[in-house]
Design a protein around this nucleic acid. Structure first.
Length: 414
RNA sequence: CGGGGAGUGGCUCAGUUUGGAUUAGAGCGCAGCGUUCGGGACGCUGAGGUCAUGGGUUCAAGUCCCAUCUCCCCGACCA
C-alpha cells in the first residue's frame, strides 16, 4: 500500500471526546470513527488489526476442534421468552417489529439460537461432542457506552458453544477452550490473567473471566508492587504477593473473555437431548465461550504504547514494515524505496510505503504514531551502502541489513 | 435514569460575564505557489461557518430567556 492512496489519516491531537489512551490513539490513527455514541465505523487501518485478531482466533479455535458457522443477528423474541432471558436482558435488548408485526430483536448473544439450531440435528451420542463458534456483531443497548469501542452498543464477539454427553466431556472441552484462549491472548501480545467469575445472566455453575490489566478497564484486579504478578480480586485476600510477599495494589482491568459451564440450562428449554449407547435419552451438556473481539483492540493498545504512539505486537500489526523515504523529491531515494517495497511485496511481507511529499520529521512522527513494528528508512545512507536501515518501533534499536535478510529480521522482530 | 461538564470551519479553542463598529477570530489541518528537506520548517495566497436545533425578548442576539437534541465524565447497570 502506498500511503498517499490509503485511507489513513493521522492527527496531532485527538478530539476532546476521547479520554483513554487507546481511544485517543485509535482516533489519531483513523482506526475508528464514531457515528453516534456507542456506534463506530472501523476504518481500513483499524479493520486490518481486527482481521489479524480474527485470524488468530480462527486458527486457535479450529485447532481446538471447533467449527465456524454464522448465526443470524436478527432473532425472534419468542426464543428469548422461552428461556425467560427476555425479561432478564430487558432494555439491553434492541427490539422492534417488522412490517408483519413480528416481534424481533438484534441478538445481544446467541445461546438461544444455537441451542435451537443444534437441537434440530443432534440426536445420538454419535453426534457428540461438537463445538461451534462464530464471529459476529452483537447488539446491546448499553446505558453508558464508554472509552470508544471498549463498551459500545454494536461490537464484534467470538462466541463458541460446546455440546457433549456428560460433565466429564464438558470439563475436557472447557479446559481445551481455556487453553485456546491463553494462546489467543498471548499471540495478541497481551499480559492477561484469568479468575473465577460470576456467570451472571448467561447462567451455569462455573465461569472464568479473562482480564487484561489496563488503565481504561472497568474491572479491578491486584498487581504486585514488587514483581508485577497479577491476581484477581477473589484470590488476593492476603493482599500480599504469593511470590515475593510484597503488597498487592489495585489496578483496572478489561474483561476480554469469559468461559462458562452452562450445563443443561439451555438444552432443557429447547429439548436438546441425545440417545446414549443403551438407548436412553439424556440432556446435552453445554458450555459457552466468548471473546470480546472489538475490545481486544483497545486492550492491546493500552498495553502496547508509549508517548509517541502505538507499538503493535507482531501478529496483530496492520503492516509488518513501513518503508520511509526521507525525501520523495529525490529521485534516487524514491526509486530505491519503491524497489524495496516491491521486494517486500514479492516476499509477501505486509508493507506500506510512505510516499507522501512531506518532511522527514513528520513522517517519523507518523511512523511512531501508527506503530508498525519495523521502520525501514531510505535516505542518503541507503544510497551509499545499500543496506536497509531497520528500526524496531518497540526497542528503538536501529540495525543495518541486506535486503535479502528481511525475512529473518521480521521473523526475529518483537 | 441521578449528578456534573460541553456544543463556534475537518481538529483544538478564544469571543458569551456586562447584547451593539470585529465585516465571527486564532492555531493546526486542507488547496495553490516559492524557499526548505534524516525527527511535526517558513513566506505569500486561498477555500472552508445555518455560532447544535427550534421558539422567544429586543431597534439589535454567538452573547439574554424557554424548550429540545447531541457528546463527554462520575454513579447505577454491564456477557
Amino acid at each position: 500500500m502506498y500511503w498517499s492512496k490509503s485511507f489513513i489519516y493521522t492527527a496531532k491531537k485527538a478530539p476532546a471526546e476521547a479520554e483513554s489512551i487507546s481511544h485517543k490513539l485509535m482516533l489519531r490513527t483513523s482506526m475508528i470513527k464514531m457515528l453516534i455514541s456507542g456506534v463506530y465505523s472501523y476504518l481500513p487501518f483499524g479493520l486490518r488489526v481486527l482481521d489479524n485478531i480474527n485470524k488468530i482466533i480462527r486458527e486457535e479455535m479450529n485447532a481446538s476442534g471447533a467449527q465456524e458457522l454464522l448465526l443470524p443477528a436478527l432473532q425472534p423474541i419468542e426464543i428469548w421468552q422461552k428461556t425467560k432471558r427476555d425479561e432478564q436482558l430487558g432494555e439491553v435488548m434492541i427490539r422492534f417489529q417488522d412490517r408483519r408485526g413480528r416481534k424481533l430483536c438484534l441478538g445481544p448473544t446467541h445461546e438461544e439460537v444455537i441451542t435451537e439450531l443444534v437441537s434440530r440435528y443432534v440426536q445420538s451420542y454419535r453426534d457428540l461432542p461438537v463445538i461451534l463458534y462464530q464471529i459476529q456483531t452483537k447488539f446491546r443497548d448499553e446505558l453508558r457506552p464508554r472509552f470508544g469501542i471498549v463498551r459500545s452498543c454494536e461490537f464484534f464477539m467470538k462466541d463458541a458453544y460446546s455440546f457433549d454427553k456428560d460433565i466429564e466431556g464438558l470439563n475436557k472441552i472447557y479446559d481445551r477452550m481455556y487453553e485456546a484462549y491463553e494462546n489467543i491472548f498471548r499471540r495478541c501480545g497481551l499480559n492477561f490473567l484469568s479468575i473465577k467469575a460470576d456467570p451472571g445472566v448467561i447462567g451455569g455453575d462455573i465461569s472464568h473471566e479473562f482480564l487484561v490489566p489496563a488503565e481504561s478497564g472497568e474491572d479491578v484486579v491486584y498487581k504486585c508492587s514488587g514483581c508485577g504478578h497479577f491476581q484477581g480480586e477473589q484470590e488476593a485476600e492476603t493482599k500480599l504477593c504469593p511470590h515475593c510477599k510484597k503488597n498487592m495494589i489495585k489496578v483496572n482491568a478489561l474483561e476480554v473473555g469469559h468461559v462458562f459451564k452452562l450445563g443443561t440450562k439451555y438444552s432443557d428449554v429447547f429439548n436438546l437431548k441425545y440417545l446414549d449407547e443403551s438407548g436412553k435419552e439424556n440432556p446435552v451438556i453445554m458450555g459457552c465461550y466468548g471473546i470480546g473481539i472489538s475490545r481486544l483492540i483497545p486492550a492491546i493498545i493500552e498495553q502496547n504504547n508509549d508517548k509517541d504512539g502505538i507499538i503493535w505486537p507482531k501478529e496483530v500489526a496492520p503492516y509488518d514494515v513501513l518503508v520511509l523515504p526521507v525525501n520523495i523529491t529525490d529521485k534516487d531515494i524514491f526509486d530505491s524505496s519503491k524497489k524495496v517495497y516491491e521486494v517486500l511485496k514479492k516476499k509477501k511481507i505486509k508493507a506500506i510505503l510512505d510516499d507522501r511529499d512531506l518532511r522527514a520529521g513528520i513522517k517519523f512522527k507518523d511512523a511512531d504514531l501508527l506503530g508498525i513494528p519495523l521502520i525501514v528508512t531510505i535516505g542518503a545512507k541507503f544510497l551509499k551502502d545499500k543496506k536497509l536501515e531497520i528500526k524496531s518501533r518497540r526497542t528503538k534499536e536501529v540495525k543495518f541489513f541486506d535486503i535479502d535478510q528481511i525475512d529473518k529480521v521480521i521473523r526475529d522482530a518483537k
